[in-house]
Structures are given as C-alpha cells and as structure tokens.
C-alpha cells in the first residue's frame, strides 16, 4: 500500500534533511506508529504521503502510484482514499457535527440521499449519534476529535492518517480516540499515527517506525517507545 525507497525531503536548498533516505513498506490493513521527538520527520513523512509536499529525492508509492510524479489535478483523487485526522481537529467550529461530517462527502460529490444515510451511521461508530445537531464549538476536545475521526472515515478511505491525534487531549480521552482508531483498523482500514505519546505506543503494541533527525532508525513489529533511545 505504501512503498518508500530512499525517500528524502529538504525544505530549503542547501538546508538540512527533514527526512533522509527513508525506505519502508506498509501493507494494507496495518496499524503503524511513527514515533520520534519534535523535528524527527514524522509530520514531513505524513505530508509526503498526502502529497502536501513533493520529495526532494527517492520514490514514494501509494496504492501503487508514484505520488511524487502525480499531476496536481489527480491529487484530490489520491486524497479521497486517505482520511486525515489532525491534532488541532481542523473542524468548522460554527457548524453542526452533522454538517462537518457531511461536508467531506458533499465536496467529493456524494449524493444527498447517500449522505443522509451515511452520516448517522458514521456518527454512531464514533459514539456521537445524539450530538448530530450540536455545534462543534459546544463540544469537548475529545468529542471534537471524534467528529474529526467521523469525517475522516466518512468516505470509507483505504487509509487513515492521524498526525498527533491525541496531542490536545487528556489521558482518558486519548485512550478513547486510540481505541476508536484501533476499531477502524480492525474493519480493514490502514491506520498511520504520528505521535510522541509513549504510553499509547507501549500500550497498543503495534508496528513502530522510529524517526530521529530525519532518519528512519528503526522498524519494529509490536514495538515500544523506549527503543527510540
């Protein structure tokens, strides 16, 4: 599903590598943590996967396609197969929970009938079926991230990318969100999570890719955070 060969990224010509010669393979249905301290290259890697940025060197294949060479007009079709979850939720705060989830479907042309059917189902999956009409700004942080998750899975993507999804949440809520991500993964969706939350990584015992100063320094099945150092 994701194949990286000698993947490198420099934001400035002559500057340091944000990611240097990273090679890895992620299969369909996997749950992978990208761990490392700030500036290790986790976010850069996620940005490369959604083609927010192009690699300076190397090849990155997503769903069998070299995303570095993907023409700009094909980008939306790549992103429709990837659900994004952000640390800051990135929701439309003045709009309702229902609108936020429906929005992701409307913008890719899903029919209104299908939206009416699918939004309540997705909200049920994240435990927000009774908050459909509530404005996002009236929800707690954990609930807002659930809306973010519901939006990410609304279009049934093959992959979910979560960039520090629990960075703004308390420990209890963090566990709820991670359990939701795990249940999404159990339904067959590939889940990639960038985090520096030690407890979560150690608790879930999933595959871990260790990044440090832009280099991929480790790749372990059922890894634990302590191995970073």
């Amino acid at each position: 599903m994701i194949e990286a060969k000698n993947l490198s990224m420099k934001y400035e010509k002559g500057g340091r590598y944000a990611l240097e010669s990273a090679s890895f393979y992620i299969d369909r249905g996997e749950f992978v943590f990208f761990v490392g301290s700030s500036g290790a290259g986790k976010s850069t890697l996620l940005k490369l996967i959604i083609r927010e940025i192009r690699p300076t060197d190397g090849v990155l294949k997503i769903f069998g396609r070299d995303v570095g060479r993907l023409p700009r007009h094909r980008l939306p079709y790549l992103r429709r197969n990837i659900g994004m979850v952000f640390q800051d939720f990135r929701l439309m705060e003045e709009r309702s929970v229902y609108d936020n989830v429906a929005f992701a479907m409307v913008v890719i042309g899903v029919s209104r009938r299908e939206i009416r059917k699918r939004v309540p189902h997705v909200l049920g999956l994240v435990g927000l079926h009774d908050k459909a009409k509530t404005r996002v700004c009236d929800l707690s942080g954990g609930e807002q991230q659930r809306v973010g998750l519901a939006r990410a899975i609304a279009n049934r993507p093959a992959m979910i990318i979560a960039d520090e999804p629990t960075g703004n949440l308390d420990p209890g809520t963090t566990l709820d969100i991670m359990n939701l991500l795990r249940s999404i993964n159990l339904r067959g969706t590939t889940v990639l999570v960038a985090t520096h939350n030690r407890e979560i990584v150690d608790r879930f015992k999933k595959r871990v890719l260790y990044l440090e100063n832009g280099k991929l320094i480790g790749d372990e099945q059922k890894g634990i955070y302590a191995h970073v150092h």
């Binding site: 939306p76 079709y77 992103r79 429709r80 994004m84 929701l91 929005f103």
Partner: peptide, 12 residues
Amino acid sequence: SIMKYVGATNWF
C-alpha cells in the same frame, strides 16, 4: 484547507 484534505477539486 479542509476541502483540500478531503479531496475536493480546485474548481469545486
């Protein structure tokens, strides 16, 4: 930016 992330085309 949300529209871009969920796969809306530029013209949309």
